[in-house]
Design a protein around this nucleic acid. Structure first.
Lengths: 187, 187
DNA sequence: GTCTATAGACGGATAGAC
DNA sequence: GTCTATCCGTCTATAGAC
């Protein structure tokens, strides 16, 4: 049993958006890689923006089990190491998020609202998790809100550095060390 | 004495690149804002890419005194607060950096090499500064290299969060708190 | 479902007049 | 120095045939 043509379009588009961004990817490029014409692609999605929405949905779907793991856990920052490892095994998923998120800060970008909402949701989830585990202050003295904000910023920034220069191989270790300090855990 | 026309083009282009990125900004849009035609702009710069190079040069120039201040200092993270404050007063400069840097991770972007080099340079400068001040380990236990990498990632990530949602007004305080922990300084 | 054909806008860039 | 005119490429999108 083979993937539907529509799914194929989504997966190829995800890949190309990850490499070249939304604005840098044409429907022609997507179509060619699937083995269709542009009009073939537009049969499944009325326009490029709708395709983008589908990409974002698809990324969340593929990441779901992974996100659920974040929810419950105990072992920080060991669990965060898992997250980083997962991203490492699925570079396309991590990359499409990073690239589209960065692109979306520009004026008139169709994914702006999505990322604003998504960011707020993820941060709130983290704040809740930290508060349940540590209360009003982490061992390091940071508030849950400051820690969540900083953690997200750190992960996004590191990912971007890595995308810019893939030579940097020691990022996972740096993340783990930094998180140990940031949370105030034993070394 | 009035700015030269050429300078005007650079400043307007910097502003538009900051808002919409390189790919999202047309020569027509720049020209219209200066009060020229597209061809008028192309009289000063042979093509769009050369204009981009000029923007990056201009940004560094405007930031120079500020960067020099980073060089010498003693007071961490008070000095970093200055950096954040400077960015806050010149949102266009901070923004054009953030937007173009993020855009440059996509395939075939003309600013890729620039940012790779610039990043490496800034990080090395930081590593040198940290090492002079603290030796092989910061008070927090992090190596100078890990601290520099994390600091840059954190600042970039925070800036991007802020660009995505300008409601977040407490970022400067969060940055200061996080840095205090990250460096291992007294609270 | 997928194609050809084509519309219609906009992109960057060049030539040449003034 | 700045313009008009123009080229050529690419883009999204639609209409209609098979």
């Amino acid at each position: 049993m083979t993937r539907s043509r529509r799914e194929e379009v989504v997966d190829v588009a995800l890949e190309l958006f990850a490499e070249r961004g939304y604005r840098g990817t044409s429907l022609d490029a997507i179509a060619a890689k699937v083995g269709l014409t542009r009009q073939g692609v537009l049969h499944y999605f009325p326009n490029k923006k709708r395709l983008l929405v589908e990409i974002l949905r698809r990324r969340e779907e593929l990441n779901r089990e992974h996100l659920l793991a974040e929810h419950a856990g105990e072992d920080w920052p060991g669990q965060m190491a898992e997250v980083v490892a997962y991203d490492h095994e699925h570079p396309g998923l991590a990359r499409v998020y990073s690239v589209l998120m960065a692109e979306s800060v520009t004026e008139g970008h169709p994914a702006q609202e999505y990322f604003r909402d998504h960011y707020a949701t993820v941060r709130e989830r983290m704040v809740r998790g930290f508060t349940e585990r540590w209360g009003e202050r982490l061992p390091s003295g940071l508030t849950p809100r400051a820690a969540a904000t900083a953690l997200l910023a750190l992960l996004d920034g590191m990912q971007q550095q890595w995308l810019l220069d893939r030579e940097q191989a020691d990022h996972p270790e740096i993340i783990e060390d930094v998180l140990t300090v940031l949370f105030g855990l034993r070394r």
